[in-house]
Design a binder for these strands. Structure first.
Lengths: 345, 345
DNA sequence: GTTAGCACTCAACCGGCTCGAGTGCTAACC
DNA sequence: GGTTAGCACTCGAGCCGGTTGAGTGCTAAC
């Protein structure tokens, strides 16, 4: 037995209906609601075939059928009608930030919130990550009598700053002089390389040796703890509206997964190759998400870094809608992060 | 009829038991578990009195009694035995950050996570907020050919930065010169005052007028959008473990409240006067939290700013435990933010 | 004032019942 | 041969009624 045109059509109807209602769908529903000019009996025969082929599951004998992960896979890969989403709220993301000081975190948080509102699922947005950024400017700014802020601007436009203790009092002009020297030496180098250059430099500049050693310590620490990706989450409560999560224990384990951002980030991040990924149920590789699907898209920033946008929902997700929303949001974020000359940390 | 010693003792036992189990407690339980040398019948009479006094509620005739908000209030105000908490995990907060670069957000996030783990409730930590910070240093750092990062260090040790566009190419030395002038003029002034000074300054410094105008725009924007308080949340999923939230709809509305950080922040913040506050059920003033209690404590930073730590749990919360945990955490955060010379944004 | 005893209440649980949606199979139909 | 009508069968959901047990309130005795 193999798939034919009609089986596909029926399968599609079943999936559409199940995505809409979340209730196992029966033969009569299909034959009536989606007029295919076939009686329920015929549909039944076809459904039985589809089950044998592994596209449908039956919770119990006297209930309707529900699509299997295999069915969703087929649906996403070939059956799905993808339409363009027309929704003003999406465009508003860029408008929301135009002409404002944009802190990367704010943008990401807002994006997650918008996506979750639009999709009614849970949205996760990861801050960009990618190839080692190269330093462009290093500057020391006096903070208090004996400490200074180290500001590092990289080619990706990303700014990292933190404070170091000064070995005694150092005046602002001296700090500036050191900054110039540092910028000259380190420009174009990665953090990695800078850690190699600094010790040699501190030998040369005897009088500031201690300060440079402090700086070295700082960079070294940074190198080991790679730029923590910011994880924005929106709409976790949305999941509780779906009957799939009417079981409190299930909901709890889902939520608690959402709280461990590191783990969540690694799940969402996946492989950075694909523009879009759709992982259905078991494909997620996460036991807690056995009946969730994860759809991701990417966006990119000036420095060639890539960020990820993800939507987590029940397997009976409105894939086409989610995909087009993610697509649109991906473009918007990319535009936003490439367009302005504002700082994006 | 009025309260006497014995009634108090019984009430305390009831509250203790209900906090522990979450199940309405009956007269027999009290007479057996907490040996008071009284029979269940006597307890019953007393309980009936306590109900009349408004300290106990009865879900239905044949169930036990549960403490009313009034009872919890009495409990918190006078009955509660507060003990010191001995838990290594609490001390570990400071250890966790000692010798590390501490970004204020990281500290707060971690604190929320620790508190929620220890208490098994939901923890919310707000970043410090308080009197207008005064500027200490203003410095421009070149970012790209035509943009610069503005770094402002305030007396609270807080650093704020964002980018402005430069009117044409400006070399690093010029930027430094302007920075010195800015620092000189603006040191000791608030953002508010700076906005008044800048226009006059830009008239004086003809050649950099445009740059200063850009800076003015930035500060003005900052002034209007006051420093967004960072809101760290931990352990939202904990709430689902309590039978109070076995109703999914209730859980959903709670979670969705947790997602609107602004609203949450304003609920938690409350009045900044008190070192501790305990709001029980209706006292929270939030309909969604009619059967939650909120306990808050404060911590403070160098600049005299105050932050808030809050725990949200069911009304039958382990108040004494929560209070001592919050107390301890408050001290730790205060120490952390006053002790080091690292930057705290 | 305290307690034992007893009647009463009521949620929770259990088992049986019906209802209805849905299936699978078979026989008739085109 | 594919399609359809018909029918027996299955099984979850919902309802009903009985039982159980925790707990109360009241009263009478201590």
């Amino acid at each position: 037995m193999e798939m034919d045109e009609r089986k596909l059509k029926i399968l599609q109807a079943i999936i559409d209906d199940y995505i809409l209602t979340g209730v196992p769908v029966g033969s009569r529903t299909i034959s009536k609601k989606y007029d295919m000019g076939l009686s329920s009996a015929t549909i039944r025969n076809e459904m039985s075939d589809l089950e044998e082929l592994g596209y449908l599951d039956q919770p119990h004998v006297s209930a309707g059928r529900i699509p299997s992960a295999k069915a969703y896979r087929l649906y996403v890969d070939s059956l799905m009608r993808t339409g363009r989403i027309q929704d003003g709220s999406l465009e508003s993301v860029s408008r929301h930030f135009t002409g404002r000081v944009r802190q990367m975190e704010d943008v990401i948080d807002h994006a997650a919130s918008v996506i979750s509102t639009l999709t009614k699922y849970t949205a996760v947005v990861l801050s960009p990550k990618g190839k080692q950024p190269r330093m462009q400017t290093v500057q020391l700014v006096p903070v208090s009598r004996d400490s200074a802020l180290v500001v590092i601007v990289t080619d990706a436009g990303i700014v990292r700053d933190s404070t170091i203790r000064l070995p005694g009092e150092v005046d602002s002009d001296t700090l500036y002089a050191i900054s110039r020297a540092l910028t000259e030496e380190l420009r174009g180098h990665t953090l990695e390389e800078a850690c190699a250059i600094l010790p040699e430099m501190s030998q040369r500049m005897q009088e500031n040796e201690e300060l440079l050693r402090g700086l070295y310590g700082l960079l070294n620490e940074r190198r080991e703890a790679p730029a923590r990706t910011h994880v924005a989450i929106g709409g976790t409560s949305n999941m509780l509206s779906y009957p799939e999560y009417s079981d409190v224990e299930k909901a709890r384990s889902f939520l608690s997964l959402m709280e461990t951002r590191d783990k969540l980030a690694s799940i969402i991040a996946g492989n950075g190759e694909m523009a879009f990924t759709v992982r259905i149920g078991p494909e997620t590789g996460v036991p807690e998400m056995a009946d969730c699907s994860i759809v991701t898209a990417t966006y990119s920033t000036r420095g060639g870094q890539q960020g990820t946008i993800g939507v987590i929902g029940p397997t009976r997700m409105q894939y086409s809608r989610v995909l087009s929303i993610l697509n649109s949001m991906g473009h918007q974020l990319t535009d936003l992060f490439n367009g302005g000359d504002e700082r994006h940390e």
